[in-house]
Design a protein around this nucleic acid. Sequence first.
RNA 1: GCGAGAGUGGCGGAACUGGCAGACGCGCUGGACUUAGGAUCCAGAGGAGAGAUCCGUAGGGGUUCGACUCCCCUCUCUCGCACCA
Length: 874
Amino acid sequence: MQERYDPQKIELKWQKYWSERGLYKTIIEPGREKFYCLEMFPYPSGKIHMGHVRNYAIGDVIARYKRMRGYNVLHPMGWDAFGLPAENAAIKEGIHPARWTYENIDYMKKQLNRMGFSYDWGREVATCSPEYYRWNQWFFLKMFERGLAYRRSSFVNWCESCMTVLANEQVIDGRCWRCDSEVLQRELEQWFFRITHYAEELLEGCEGLTGWPDNVVAMQKNWIGRSEGVEMDFPIAGMDEKIRIFTTRPDTLWGATFICLAPGHPLLDKLVADKGGLDRVKARYGKVEEKEGLFTGHYAINPMNNEKIPIYAASFVLMEYGTGAIMSVPGHDQRDLDFARKYGLPIKVVIVPEDGVPKKSKIFWGNSSVADGVEYSSIIEAFEGEGVLINSGQFTGLRSIDARKAIAKYIEEKGLGKVTINYKLRDWGISRQRYWGTPIPIIYCEKCGIVPVPEEDLPVILPEDVRFTGRGGSPLLNSEDFIRVNCPGCGGPARRETDTMDTFVDSSWYFLAYCFERGNIDFKSVISDERSPIKYWMPVEQYIGGVEHAVLHLLYSRFFTHVLRDLDIVDFDEPFSRLLTQGMVCKETIRCPEHGWLFPEEAKDNTCLHCGREVMRGRVEKMSKSKRNVVDPDHLIRKYGADTARLFSLFAAPPEKDLEWSDRGVEGAYRFLNRLWGIVCKYKGQWIKGKRGQKRQEIEAPIACGLSPAALSLLRKTHQTIKRVTTDIEREYHFNTAIAALMELVNECASFQPRSDDEWSVLRQSIETALLLLSPFSPHIAEELWEAIGNTPSISEQRWPEWDDELVKEGEIELVVQVNGRVRARLMVPAGLSEDAIKEKALSDEKVKGIIGIKSIRKIFVVRDRLVNIVINN
RNA sequence: GCGAGAGUGGCGGAACUGGCAGACGCGCUGGACUUAGGAUCCAGAGGAGAGAUCCGUAGGGGUUCGACUCCCCUCUCUCGCACCA
C-alpha cells in the first residue's frame, strides 16, 4: 500500500476490475426483488458537464446502495442521440451528424466510466440507431391505426432565410436564433399525436404520483389546464349565424356587454368589411402589452336577456382555446374591462361582495350607483371574486358559486348550450423539417392519399448520402433516392414524407428499451409473453433528472405509457414511481464592467486583469459557458479523482437543491478521503490484530462490556453512524447529512488508539463499516482500502451493514435543565432514568436550587433522556 | 395575476413526529512542526458584554411550560405558467 493517496492509479485499477468481472451486468432473476434506478439519458453534445456529474452521482449512490441491500438493480445508460446540434455541426464543419454523434458518444462514455458509475452497458441504446428508431416508427403506425397520429395544417415558426421551421425556443424576440431574420407564422401540414385524448386520464393520474415532487405534479396539472364551463350560442342580429362562446363564469351572463372574436375566427370574413383594420388586430395577436380591437358593425343577442351587444374582433382572444370567441363581462373580468375602457363600451355590475361594497373601492365607485347596476365609467378594477348576483333576472340574489350551477343547468334545459370541459393542453406536433431525426413512416400517393409504410418495411432508414448546406430546408428534400418510392397500396409512383419526428418522441419510451438486452428490443412479442422483461423491470422505482423536463418529457412519457397500455404492450399506467429532480450546479460569476463575464483567472484581487477596473463578484448562477463559470469534469478528475468529485457534489447540498460549486469545498472532500487513507496506511500490517466484522453481534455484544470508555464510544459511534447513514439515504436521499455522519465517524477513528486485541477489533470494524458506508459515494477508495485492511474484493458485493439498537444507545446523556424555558444547567446522567429520578436530579442541582429559591414550582415537564423544564411562579 | 417553493453564523448547509439552534464542511483566528507553508497536526469561535447574563432562525402578532418547527399578517427572493375567458 502506498503512503500517498493517488486517486488516478487506484480508480483506473478498480474500474478495470469492475468491468472485467462484469460486476454491474444485470439479468432477470424471477422471484428476486428488483429495483430500477434510472437517470435521464444525456444528449451526446461532446463532453459531460457538472450537471451530468451530479445527476449520475446521485443515481449511482442509489443504485449501489440498493445493490448492497440485496436488490436486483437495473441501472442502465444510453444516448438521446438525435437532435439539432449534430446537424448544425454538419453544416458548419462538414462532419456527418452520425459521425459527430458517435464520436461524442465514445468520448462521453469514457468520461462516465472514468467517474466510476455502475452501469450495465449491456443495455445501452442510442436513439439514432435504426434498431432503436424503428420502434418510433412502429409506435407511430400503431397510433396512426388508432387515429392517435393524424395530420392537419397548423401555424409554425418559419424562417424565410433558413427555409425551415423553428422550435419556439429557437425564436428569440421574434427573430431567428441563427440568422436573425424575422420569424413568420406559416401554415404547414404537420403530424400530431392526439395527447388531448388522454388529457383527463393524465390529469387524474397526477393524483397517483405520490412519489413525485409537488411542484412537478403542480406543473403537470397546470399544463393540462382543465377548466369547466359552458358553451353556448349567441345569435347574430339580422343574420342566420350564431357565435359559439365558452365561459367558466355563466353567473356573469347578465353582465356581458359585448362579444369578442379571435382575429383568426372564421366568421370574421363574413362580418368584417374593413380588412385593413382586421389586419391591424391580427398583427397584435399574441402580444400582451396592449389590446387591439375592431368593431365588426354587427350585433349579437344575449339569449339570457335578449340584449343586443356589439361584436368585436379582439387581439387578446385566442383561437386555439375554447371556441375562439368569448362573451365579455367588463364588470367582472379585468381584460374585458381594459378593452371596454379603451373602446368606450358599457360596464355592468352583476355581482357584489356578500359582505357589502367596501368604501373607497376602485371597483364600485360609490354605492348609490351599484343599485341601478348599469354603467360605471369610473370603474378601473373588475371585481373577479365571489359574491351575490344583482340585476340577473330570476337568478338575482343567488350566491355566484351556486348561480354558476343553476344557470348552467338552466342553459342545458332550455337547449341554449351545454356544460363542457376545456384543456389548455394541445395536441403534440411532432413534425420537424430536419434531417437528424426519425423519418415519419408515411408515403403520399396521388391515387391512394396518405399511406402508412407497411410494418414489414420498417425501419425507414435515414439516407446517409445527403448534403448539409443549411439552406433549402431539410436535406431529405433533396434526396431523390429517399423520396421516390412505390405506393404500398397501388404500386404506383409515390413520395415519402420528408419530415422527421420531434426528438421528444425518442425519449418517451427509452426506459422501456433498457428492459431488453442490447439488440433485443422487441415490442411485438411483448403483448403476449408472460415473461416479458418489461413485466419484470417496470415501472422505474427511482427516476432522477433535472426539473427542466418537469412538463414536456415527463408528460410525453406518461402519455406514451398510457397509449402503450391501450395497445396491450404494457400493463401499468405510470412509468415512474418516484421522481427526484436534482437542483442545478451553480458557481460564482465574475463580471467586469468593461469586459463582461470573466474566467476566475482573469481577475485578481477583485480587479480585471485586462483593464484594472473593479469586478463584480458574488452572483451565484447556473454554470454556463457564456458566463465563464463552468468547471470541467476532466480537470477535476485529473486533479482530485472521481471519488472526490462525486463526494463533493453529494456533500455540498441536498440533491433537490441547487448546488453551489466551491473549489475550497472540493479540497475539503479531498482532505477527508486523504485522512481516511492516512488512518488505514498508519496501521498497515497491523489490521490483522483485529477480528473481521463478519458476525458483528456475536463479537461485539460480549466485548462491549470490557472495553475502555474510548473504545466503547467508538463502537457506539459506529452503530449510530450505520443508523444515521441508512436512514438519511432511505428518507429523501439526504446524502449530505449521511456524508457528514461518516466524517464524524472517521474523525473519531482517527483519534482512537487501540491498546488491546479487542480494541483492535473495534477499530477494524469501525473502519470497515466506514468503508462500506462510503462505498456508494466514493467506490474506488472504498475498494482499495477494503482490500488494504485485509478483505477480499469487491466491497460492492458486500451486504450493507446493520446496526444494533443496544449499541446505538448512549450509556450516559447530558440532561438539559431548564427553568421557565431557559437553560440553567446541564447534568451528566445515566441514560434511561425515570421521570421521577430526573426530577430529583434536576431539583437537587445547586444552581437550579439557587434560581428557584423560595418560589413555588408550578409544574415540571420531563422529556426523557433529553431535557427537564421546571416552571416556577415569578 | 395564478401556481409551487424558499428565507437560519462570514459562506454551503444541520436540527426526525414542537424539546440544548448552528452538526458536518469551507473560510477565519491562535499555536505546533518547518528554510518555507497555499502541506499536516492541535486548539478556538453566532452576536453583545470584563462578568454573571442578555440578544439571536426575514419582520410583526398568536398558540404552548417550551416554537427554526404549528396558526395569522407583512416583506423579500427563486422557479414554473401566463390575455386559457
